[in-house]
Design a protein around this nucleic acid. Structure first.
Length: 856
RNA sequence: GCGAGAGUGGCGGAACCGGCAGACGCGCUGGAUUUAGGUUCCAGUACCCUCGGGUGUGGGGGUUCGAGUCCCCCCUCUCGCACCA
């Protein structure tokens, strides 16, 4: 200590304290530590090999929040781990002819060091690596559990396939209108395959319930839209000349009298049967075309809705009139019943379709105020037989001219039915209810709720993932691997070839097994699980990593120590990127429901409070990417300025949820700030001026004002304004140093400043704290107490306006009553000047703020 | 098209419930120190101006004693969803 330099040398200081904290384990999980338990979580990183500035931006402010929480008396658990399965490892393995594990663990090794340089209070002893068999055995256990509960099933169906990643994807992993792979931006293709899915749709309704969750509005809205609940009516329409009926689904039963045709999805099972002999060939050709249509074609902007008449007619449920049945690929088999009633006057897609094939357009709802009482009480004439094979002009009454301006009219709020028989005049939502009830009474329809959410496809044709614990036996069929035989391990000697196929398919040792049911020869499932399975429950695993290591698993187990779960769950604060709004955050909630129903999890809402940080952009305000050459390497900046400066700067840039561009010059400001604090403490000040009591009191007020502000800003993650407030205090300390240094006020100011800064700049504050106090770490100190009397000013500056323009300012004691303020204001010479000859009409006085004199 | 969010100096951004617009920082300008550059320190920095003041928060209207903030209309940008019946 005697040779201690007075220079600020972050590299030396940071290495020293990092070592000390680690040796003392001050950040590790400790059930016995006093204080209310608080589980603070940042999303676990993928071990890509290099820590990106984006990782810093995600984790550093999160760490600051966790540290503040600890200072305010909480027993904080802030774990970290690695989401270690995934395709990049496999690609690297092929390229270098090594095992993906080698690549992955080398990256983890490197990233651990980088993560540690951040100076975060991670509880490293609870680290979890998801590609460990002791971790993924629980993925398999959970899969098995879901299988037993009927929540995991295998289905042969059209699925999205990424030709570049050579694997199928979940619906959530297909992005945007162009339908690109979420990982590699390649357009996905449709394939029909046998795939394992998790029945997330069973929880659709519950997933819409966010009550009690402090989650950002944006996430709640996105998830709600993704789940896409709609309330409608499903009803039967008899098909003429056959015993069959088609079931259609609509959310607009009030427009039912406007039906002019029906549309089945090309894949609808009844199509073949219904098609009239004359139309059979056209129907078959269209189905063929729809099946082969590539995604690109389907999405091309020039594409219009097309379809083919089947030659069959359905009967309108109320009028009994025949309605032509078409097939068209704008109707999807995967939603509703795969069949619709088409009301072109009140649905834009039906409208386009009707326009193209010149089908009639019959309006039956319009704004309520435009519907005259008693209008159109006779049954509508909307559904006329149409010989769609001939041009519409030749169809009696089928010239589509009934439409006119203002169509399609799709508004439902405030709309009323007309020309709809007994329903005419009914206004939404009465109109919905009345038609729905009528259909229900007939016995051919019932109200029905549909969701856009699809089941989660988890099969991946990749090797570096959790093997799906299923065996296929010629005799017994699909057999789940028994709990006690888990884990099904990945082979260590798989051969990686650039064929794009999973090596598991050719690994005899893995593939060939004995059927758990009959003992006969059987084959293992070679698909692995989506890595989002790992991240759907890792937060519980952190509590007791690799629980039941080396032990046999049983159905009644819990993948983590149950007592720990009861003590520490739910996660009190979760932070991470908004890009996970749908996938990870939806799967996580689904898993919580499923695990709770399995009796494994003691709660259904796993995350109480969520915060999404923004994205840090390159200097050019663009997303960082190697191709743009605007990537900021945190290691370089740490080497130059120290981790504390990088931490401070990332939090100073702007609101955390906003992200923003990295300005390489901007960091200088926080570097100066750190230097200023450093030299205020370690170097003797200027020759002391006589101690000044008034200055000292002023300083104390500033300190407590800042303390109040800092506490508030920490809680709402407003680090940018928090740091600005600390800088203001720094400026004041520099100004008043000569007159206050050495006084109790000065000492209080310095200690308080260090404590307020500790969560932001853990290294420098620890070093300075230890130089002043020697002993327990600054990071186990309590948050300083704020004196509210000092935090508020005794006197306030009141502005005086004349007709809304500022003319003067007056200093008044806090809480001066309005009439006294008014009197004081009117006495000011400047105010008198400004008033001149004007007569005072009115005076508005707002306590502690302003006086506005209205004159004219 | 639907949904969400955002438009404030040269730049990042402040501004609680409607009450001094531009805190804090970067950059820039001038000065001091320095052989020079850098560092550091001091002063200045929204715009216009006849130095009294005037104008300013994407544009236009409105409410109010008073609007960046509230209401209506419009424009621009970012994100999410998009044949979901």
């Amino acid at each position: 200590m005697s040779t201690m330099s007075d220079r600020y040398t972050p590299a030396e200081i940071e290495a020293r304290w990092r070592q000390k904290w680690e040796a003392e384990g001050i950040y590790e999980l400790d059930d016995e530590r006093p204080g209310k338990r608080f589980y603070w979580l940042t999303m676990l990183p993928y071990p890509s090999g290099d820590l990106h500035i984006g990782h810093w931006y995600a984790m550093v402010p999160s760490d600051a929040g966790a540290r503040f929480k600890r200072m305010t008396g909480h027993n904080v658990f802030f774990p970290i781990g690695f989401d270690a399965f995934g395709l990049p490892a496999e690609n690297a393995a092929i390229k270098r002819n090594i095992h993906p594990r080698e690549w992955t663990y080398a990256n983890i090794e490197r990233m651990r060091g980088q993560l540690k340089s951040m100076g975060a209070m991670f509880a490293w002893r609870n680290e979890v690596i998801t590609c460990e068999p002791e971790y993924y055995k629980w993925n398999q256990w959970i899969f098995r559990k879901l299988f037993d509960m009927g929540l995991a099933y295998r289905e042969f169906a059209p699925v999205d396939f990424c030709p570049s990643c050579n694997t199928t994807l979940a619906r959530e992993q297909v992005v945007g209108e162009a339908r690109l792979c979420e990982r590699c931006d390649t357009p996905v293709v449709k394939k029909e395959l046998n795939q394992w899915k998790l029945r997330i749709t069973r929880y659709a309704e519950e997933l819409l319930d966010f009550s009690g969750l402090e989650w950002p509005e944006a996430v709640r809205v996105m998830q709600t839209n993704w789940i896409g609940r709609s309330e409608g009516v499903e009803f039967e329409m008899a098909v003429e000349g056959s015993g069959q009926a088609i079931r259609v689904y609509t959310t607009r039963p009030d427009t039912i009298f406007g039906i002019t045709f029906c549309v089945l999805s090309p894949e609808h099972p009844l199509v073949e049967e219904l098609a009239a002999p004359a139309q059979r060939e056209a129907v078959r050709a269209y189905r063929e075309q729809a099946r082969n249509r590539s995604e690109v074609e389907r999405m091309s902007e020039a594409r219009e809705c097309d379809g083919v008449f089947t030659g069959a007619y359905a009967r309108h449920p109320f009028t009994g009139k025949p309605v032509p049945i078409w097939i068209a690929d704008y109707v999807l088999m995967g939603y509703g019943t795969g069949a619709i009633m088409a009301v072109p006057a009140h649905d834009s897609r039906d409208f386009t379709f009707a326009g193209r094939y010149r089908l009639p357009i019959v309006p039956v709802v319009r704004p309520a105020e435009e519907v005259r009482p008693g209008e159109g009480v006779r049954p509508a004439d909307g559904a006329r037989p149409v010989d769609a094979a001939r041009p519409a002009a030749a169809v009696p009454g089928g010239d589509g001219a009934a439409g006119g301006a203002g169509l399609p009219y799709t508004e439902k709020e405030g709309s009323a039915m007309f020309e709809s028989g007994p329903f005419s005049g009914l206004v939404w939502p009465e109109s919905f209810r009345a038609v729905a009830e009528a259909l229900e009474k007939k016995g051919t329809g019932q109200r029905s709720v549909k969701y856009r959410l699809r089941d989660w496809l988890i099969s991946r044709q990749r090797m570096w993932g959790t093997p799906i614990p299923i065996v296929y036996c010629k005799a017994c069929g699909t057999v789940p691997v028994p709990y006690e035989q888990l884990p099904v391990r990945l082979p260590d000697d798989a051969v990686y070839k650039p064929t794009g196929e999973s090596p598991l398919k050719y690994h005899e040792g893995f593939l060939r097994t004995a059927c758990p049911a009959c003992g006969g020869p059987a084959e293992r499932e070679t698909d692995t699980m989506d890595t989002f399975v790992c991240s759907s429950w890792y937060m519980y695993a952190y509590l007791s990593p690799y629980w039941k290591r080396g032990q046999r698993l049983a159905p009644a187990d819990t993948p983590w120590e149950p007592e720990r779960g009861r003590q520490w769950l739910p996660i009190d604060q979760y932070t991470g990127g908004i890009e996970h709004a749908i996938m990870h955050l939806l799967y996580l909630r689904f898993f919580a429901y499923a695990l709770a129903d399995a009796g494994a999890l003691p709660l259904r809402a796993p995350v109480r409070r969520l915060f999404n940080q923004g994205i840090i952009l390159g200097e050019d305000n663009e997303k960082m990417s190697k191709s743009r050459g605007n990537v900021v390497n945190p290691d370089d900046i740490v080497a130059r300025y120290g981790a504390d400066a990088v931490r401070l700067y990332l939090m100073f840039i702007g609101p955390w949820d906003q992200g923003g561009p990295w300005n390489p010059q901007g960091i200088e400001g926080v570097v100066r700030f750190l230097h200023d604090i450093w030299y205020l403490i370690v170097r003797p000040g200027p020759a002391a001026a006589p101690a000044n009591a008034a200055r000292a009191t002023e300083l104390r007020r500033a300190v407590h004002r800042t303390l109040k502000r800092a506490g508030e800003d920490y809680q709402s993650f407003k680090y940018n304004t928090l740091i600005a407030a600390l800088m203001v205090l720094r400026n004041q300390l520099k100004t008043c140093r000569a007159e206050t240094e050495g006084s109790p006020a000065w000492e209080e100011a310095i200690d308080t400043l260090l404590l307020m800064m500790a969560p932001l700049a853990p290294y420098a504050t620890e070093e300075l704290w230890q130089r002043r106090h020697r002993g327990a770490s600054i990071h186990v100190q309590p948050w300083p107490r704020c004196d509210p009397a000092l935090a508020t000013e005794a006197r306030v500056t009141v502005i005086v306006q004349v007709n809304g323009k500022v003319r003067d300012r007056i200093e008044l004691p806090l809480g001066t009553p309005a009439d006294r303020m008014q009197a004081a204001a009117l006495e000011q010479p400047k105010v008198r000047d400004a008033l001149g000859k004007l007569a005072v009409r009115k005076v508005i006085a707002v306590e502690n703020k302003l006086v506005n004199i209205v004159a004219g």
